[in-house]
Amino acid sequence: MAHDGGGAFAGATPAHAFDPWSYREDADVTGGDVVGYKVEATDGGIGKIDSASHDVNASYLVVDTGPWIFGKKVMLPAGVINHVDHEDRKVYLDRSKGQIKAAPEFDETTYGDPTYRDKLGGYYGGTYGAPGSTLPPTA
Protein backbone atom coordinates (compact mmCIF):
# COMPACT_ATOMS: atom_id res chain seq x y z
CA MET A 1 0.00 0.00 0.00
CA ALA A 2 1.15 3.49 -0.71
CA HIS A 3 2.16 5.93 1.96
CA ASP A 4 -0.13 8.94 1.89
CA GLY A 5 2.48 11.36 3.23
CA GLY A 6 0.26 12.31 6.13
CA GLY A 7 1.56 9.99 8.82
CA ALA A 8 -0.46 6.91 7.90
CA PHE A 9 -0.52 4.37 5.12
CA ALA A 10 -3.36 4.72 2.64
CA GLY A 11 -5.99 2.19 3.56
CA ALA A 12 -4.66 1.66 7.08
CA THR A 13 -6.93 2.36 9.99
CA PRO A 14 -7.04 4.57 11.84
CA ALA A 15 -5.67 7.28 9.58
CA HIS A 16 -4.28 9.52 12.30
CA ALA A 17 -0.95 9.96 14.08
CA PHE A 18 0.71 6.77 15.29
CA ASP A 19 0.47 6.20 19.03
CA PRO A 20 2.76 3.29 19.88
CA TRP A 21 1.40 2.76 23.39
CA SER A 22 -2.36 2.74 22.76
CA TYR A 23 -4.48 0.03 21.16
CA ARG A 24 -6.34 1.09 18.04
CA GLU A 25 -10.05 1.55 18.60
CA ASP A 26 -10.87 -0.94 15.83
CA ALA A 27 -8.31 -3.60 16.89
CA ASP A 28 -10.79 -5.28 19.30
CA VAL A 29 -8.11 -5.95 21.91
CA THR A 30 -10.39 -5.01 24.79
CA GLY A 31 -12.86 -7.74 23.82
CA GLY A 32 -11.13 -10.19 26.15
CA ASP A 33 -7.90 -11.41 27.65
CA VAL A 34 -5.37 -12.10 24.88
CA VAL A 35 -2.75 -13.93 26.99
CA GLY A 36 -2.05 -17.26 25.30
CA TYR A 37 -3.19 -16.05 21.86
CA LYS A 38 -0.93 -16.75 18.87
CA VAL A 39 0.70 -13.72 17.25
CA GLU A 40 0.88 -13.29 13.48
CA ALA A 41 3.25 -10.84 11.78
CA THR A 42 2.51 -9.83 8.19
CA ASP A 43 4.64 -12.76 7.01
CA GLY A 44 3.86 -15.50 9.54
CA GLY A 45 3.60 -16.53 13.16
CA ILE A 46 6.05 -15.29 15.77
CA GLY A 47 4.86 -16.91 19.01
CA LYS A 48 2.30 -16.63 21.79
CA ILE A 49 1.38 -13.78 24.10
CA ASP A 50 2.99 -14.18 27.52
CA SER A 51 1.51 -11.03 29.06
CA ALA A 52 -0.50 -7.97 28.04
CA SER A 53 -0.91 -4.51 29.49
CA HIS A 54 -3.99 -2.35 29.07
CA ASP A 55 -2.59 0.68 30.90
CA VAL A 56 -3.69 4.00 29.45
CA ASN A 57 -0.99 5.33 27.09
CA ALA A 58 1.33 2.49 28.15
CA SER A 59 -0.19 -0.66 26.61
CA TYR A 60 1.94 -3.46 25.20
CA LEU A 61 2.22 -7.19 24.60
CA VAL A 62 5.08 -9.45 25.61
CA VAL A 63 5.40 -12.33 23.17
CA ASP A 64 7.28 -15.58 23.85
CA THR A 65 8.84 -16.30 20.46
CA GLY A 66 9.70 -19.93 21.27
CA PRO A 67 12.22 -21.34 18.78
CA TRP A 68 11.71 -18.50 16.29
CA ILE A 69 14.20 -16.18 18.07
CA PHE A 70 15.81 -18.85 20.26
CA GLY A 71 13.21 -18.63 23.01
CA LYS A 72 13.49 -14.90 23.57
CA LYS A 73 10.61 -12.63 24.43
CA VAL A 74 9.78 -9.45 22.56
CA MET A 75 7.82 -6.45 23.73
CA LEU A 76 5.39 -5.00 21.20
CA PRO A 77 3.81 -1.58 21.64
CA ALA A 78 0.02 -1.73 21.38
CA GLY A 79 0.02 0.42 18.24
CA VAL A 80 1.50 -2.32 16.04
CA ILE A 81 -1.56 -4.53 16.58
CA ASN A 82 -3.80 -4.47 13.54
CA HIS A 83 -6.65 -6.59 14.88
CA VAL A 84 -7.59 -9.49 17.13
CA ASP A 85 -9.54 -12.59 16.15
CA HIS A 86 -10.95 -13.83 19.46
CA GLU A 87 -12.59 -16.85 17.83
CA ASP A 88 -9.27 -18.14 16.45
CA ARG A 89 -7.31 -16.74 19.42
CA LYS A 90 -4.89 -14.79 17.20
CA VAL A 91 -3.48 -11.28 17.31
CA TYR A 92 -2.46 -9.83 13.94
CA LEU A 93 0.32 -7.26 13.65
CA ASP A 94 1.04 -4.79 10.87
CA ARG A 95 4.80 -5.39 11.03
CA SER A 96 6.97 -8.14 9.52
CA LYS A 97 9.01 -10.78 11.33
CA GLY A 98 12.21 -8.99 10.29
CA GLN A 99 11.03 -5.70 11.76
CA ILE A 100 10.13 -7.40 15.04
CA LYS A 101 13.38 -9.37 15.19
CA ALA A 102 15.43 -6.19 14.60
CA ALA A 103 13.63 -4.23 17.36
CA PRO A 104 15.53 -3.08 20.47
CA GLU A 105 16.16 -6.14 22.63
CA PHE A 106 13.78 -6.80 25.50
CA ASP A 107 14.51 -8.34 28.87
CA GLU A 108 12.40 -8.71 32.00
CA THR A 109 13.85 -5.53 33.56
CA THR A 110 12.76 -3.21 30.73
CA TYR A 111 8.95 -3.26 31.19
CA GLY A 112 8.72 0.17 32.83
CA ASP A 113 12.03 1.68 31.74
CA PRO A 114 11.16 5.01 30.05
CA THR A 115 14.38 5.00 27.99
CA TYR A 116 13.63 1.56 26.57
CA ARG A 117 9.99 2.47 25.91
CA ASP A 118 11.03 5.66 24.07
CA LYS A 119 13.56 3.69 22.02
CA LEU A 120 11.04 0.94 21.18
CA GLY A 121 8.24 3.39 20.35
CA GLY A 122 10.62 5.36 18.12
CA TYR A 123 11.86 2.19 16.41
CA TYR A 124 8.36 1.26 15.26
CA GLY A 125 8.08 4.70 13.71
CA GLY A 126 5.54 7.43 13.35
CA THR A 127 3.07 5.61 11.12
CA TYR A 128 0.71 2.70 11.26
CA GLY A 129 1.96 -0.05 9.00
CA ALA A 130 -0.37 -1.37 6.37
CA PRO A 131 -1.42 -5.01 6.64
CA GLY A 132 0.83 -7.01 4.33
CA SER A 133 3.29 -4.12 4.03
CA THR A 134 6.97 -4.90 4.08
CA LEU A 135 8.01 -1.26 4.30
CA PRO A 136 10.45 -0.62 7.15
CA PRO A 137 9.26 1.69 9.92
CA THR A 138 10.34 5.30 9.70
CA ALA A 139 12.58 6.76 12.38
Rank of each mutant, 00 (worst) to 15 (best):
G5M: 15
G5C: 13
A10K: 14
A10T: 13
G11V: 01
G11W: 06
P14W: 03
A15N: 12
H16T: 13
D19E: 15
P20Q: 07
Y23M: 07
D28P: 02
D28S: 14
V29I: 13
T30C: 01
G31V: 05
G31A: 09
G32P: 07
D33G: 03
V34R: 11
A41M: 13
A41T: 03
I46T: 07
I49Y: 03
A52D: 01
S53L: 08
D55L: 13
N57T: 05
A58Y: 02
S59Q: 04
S59H: 08
S59V: 13
Y60H: 11
T65M: 03
T65G: 02
W68T: 06
G71I: 08
K72V: 00
K72H: 05
L76H: 07
G79S: 05
V80N: 04
V80F: 01
V80T: 14
I81F: 07
N82P: 00
N82I: 00
D85K: 12
H86R: 03
H86V: 06
E87G: 15
K90R: 15
Y92W: 10
L93P: 03
D94T: 01
D94R: 07
R95Y: 14
R95F: 12
R95C: 11
S96Y: 10
K97A: 09
G98A: 15
G98N: 15
Q99L: 10
I100T: 06
F106I: 02
F106K: 04
D107L: 10
G112T: 15
D113R: 03
D113N: 15
G121F: 07
G121C: 04
G122C: 01
Y123Q: 00
Y128I: 10
Y128R: 10
S133Q: 06
T134F: 14
P137S: 02
P137W: 05
P137Q: 05
T138C: 08
T138H: 11
T138P: 01
